[in-house]
């Protein structure tokens, strides 16, 4: 069991990727030491004793440097917390709780996947759903797996991390609403087209808005492709205490809790 740390870290880099997408890098060695792809961190975005905003904000790990003691989060500014986070100055302190939740199950740990010689893995990202994929792709590539990424966003300038993921050796196919007409504009259409074209995968991972996840789930189910989803839900403690971040279970009645049963779940375990 990983131990969760409530750690005061230091912001060591602030990057502006687009006018609304940012990456913040934090030196917090105790959290970074144990962080795994797909896990997340709860960040206090406001001033230390401030109630503005009250709750910590959850973000997936977008970069993990366990040895260097740092991690990054990649986010879109959508409200008060993310607005404050992007304005924290390099050198300032920031408190974070993590690593939290269950991360991605890698192919060799995964029972759902058939015994393919060299498994081929598919990543499907919608918008900020790209955030957790860089650490995952790094792990997959290190294991010598073939990795493809289907990546959809509204604008082509919103395709954060695209170049870096390509540089890892991934096959990357993108779609945006700008290039409508040339190719599918929705990542789920791109997924269908890729599968229809005869591409075969042994395992898929998806992260993005709820509607996209449920469409990806349908397509993967039809082609019997095992799928892991990274979920988001309104959340408070991140620890499994408040039971706020519920997500309906598929099989029996009742709920999973995204913070501790997820954020990564097998698609067949949840109702979307």
């Amino acid at each position: 069991m990983v131990s969760i740390k409530f750690e005061q870290g230091t912001v060591i880099a602030q990057e502006t990727l687009t006018p609304s997408i940012f990456r913040t890098t934090i030196h917090a060695p105790n959290i970074a030491a144990e962080a795994l792809p797909g896990q997340f961190v709860n960040i206090k975005c406001g001033a230390p004793a401030s109630y503005d905003p009250l709750l910590l904000r959850p973000f997936s790990f977008n970069r993990i440097d366990s040895e260097g003691g740092t991690f990054s989060v990649l986010y879109r500014v959508v409200g008060r917390g993310t607005e404050l986070l992007r304005h924290i100055r390099v050198g300032d302190k920031l408190t974070a709780l993590g690593p939290l939740g269950k991360g991605f199950v890698l192919p060799e740990q995964s029972k759902q996947m058939g015994p393919a010689a060299k498994p081929s893995v598919l990543l499907v990202a919608g918008g900020m759903g790209i955030a957790p994929f860089y650490p995952l792709a790094t792990a997959l590539v290190t294991h010598g797996l073939e990795v493809s990424l289907l990546y959809g966003a509204r604008l082509s300038s919103d395709l954060a991390d695209k170049t870096e993921l390509k540089a890892l050796g991934l096959r990357v196919l993108c779609c945006t609403e700008e290039q409508r007409g040339e190719c599918p504009s929705l990542v789920t259409d791109l997924l269908q087209a890729t599968i229809d074209a005869g591409d075969r995968f042994d395992l898929a991972y998806a992260c993005g808005p709820r509607g996209m996840l449920s469409a990806v789930k349908r397509v993967c189910k039809d082609s019997e492709l095992p799928l892991q989803l990274s979920l988001e839900e309104h959340m408070a403690c991140g620890l499994g205490v408040c039971l706020g971040c519920s997500c309906e279970r598929a099989s029996d009645e009742g709920y999973w809790h995204v913070c501790t049963d997820g954020p990564v779940v097998w698609a067949e375990e949840v109702k979307l």
Binding site: Y51, L54, H234, A236, C242, L243, G244, Y255
Partner: peptide, 23 residues
């Protein structure tokens, strides 16, 4: 008890509205 369906948390200025439903 399984608790309530739908969203369960809403943040407000310095506050939190919950609808856990005694899960």
């Amino acid at each position: 008890r399984h608790g309530n369906a739908g969203r369960r948390l809403v943040e407000t200025p310095a506050g939190l509205i919950n609808s856990i439903g005694l899960e």
